[in-house]
Simulated assay, not measured.
Amino acid sequence: MRQGSKGDDRYSRAGRGDALHRYELLRVRGRSVAWVPPLLLLVVIAAVDYHTGGVFRIISWIVLVPGIAAAICGVWGTAVFAVLAIGTFWVVDSVWLHEFQTGLPDFILVTVGGVLATLACAVRVRGERRALYMRDVADTVRRTVLRPLPPFWGGLEHAGVYLSAEARARVGGDFYDIQPGPYGTRVLFGDVQGKGLGAVETALVLLGTFREAAPHEPELAAVAERLEQRMLRHRDYVRALGRTDADRFATAVLLGFPVAPSDTVEVVVFGHEPPLAVRPGSVRSLSVTGGLPLGLRELDPAPVRVHRLSLAADETLLVVTDGVTEARDAHGAFYRLAEEVARAVTRDPGLAEPDRLAAFVREGTLRHSGGRLSDDTTVFAVRRIRAPEGERPEGGRSRI
Rank of each mutant, 00 (worst) to 15 (best):
G4S: 11
G4P: 06
R13W: 10
L20V: 08
Y23D: 14
A34R: 05
P37V: 06
P38G: 01
P38A: 04
L40K: 08
L41D: 04
V44A: 12
A46P: 02
A47R: 08
V48W: 02
V48P: 00
T52C: 03
G53P: 01
G53S: 09
F56W: 10
I59C: 00
A70H: 10
C73Y: 06
T78W: 04
F81N: 06
L84S: 02
F89T: 07
V91G: 05
V92S: 10
D93M: 02
W96R: 11
L97P: 09
H98I: 09
E99Q: 14
F100P: 01
F107K: 02
I108L: 14
G114E: 04
L116W: 11
L116D: 05
A131W: 09
R135S: 06
D136G: 15
D139I: 04
R143Q: 15
R147Y: 09
G154W: 02
L156Q: 02
L156S: 07
V161D: 04
S164D: 04
A167N: 11
G173M: 08
P180R: 13
T185V: 06
V187S: 01
D191E: 13
K195F: 04
G198Y: 07
A203E: 02
G208P: 10
L220Y: 02
R230L: 00
R235P: 01
R243N: 13
F249V: 02
L254T: 03
L255V: 14
L255A: 07
F270Q: 10
H272T: 08
P274T: 08
A277Y: 05
R279I: 04
S282R: 11
S285P: 02
S287P: 11
V288E: 09
P293A: 08
G295Y: 03
V304Y: 01
V304N: 05
V304Q: 03
A312M: 08
L317C: 14
A330V: 12
F334I: 01
F334K: 01
L337E: 10
V345P: 00
D348C: 03
P349G: 05
G350Y: 04
E353C: 13
A358Y: 01
A358E: 06
F360V: 07
F360G: 13
E363N: 09
L366D: 06
L366E: 14
H368D: 09
L373H: 01
D376V: 03
P388K: 10
G390L: 07
G390W: 14
R397L: 06
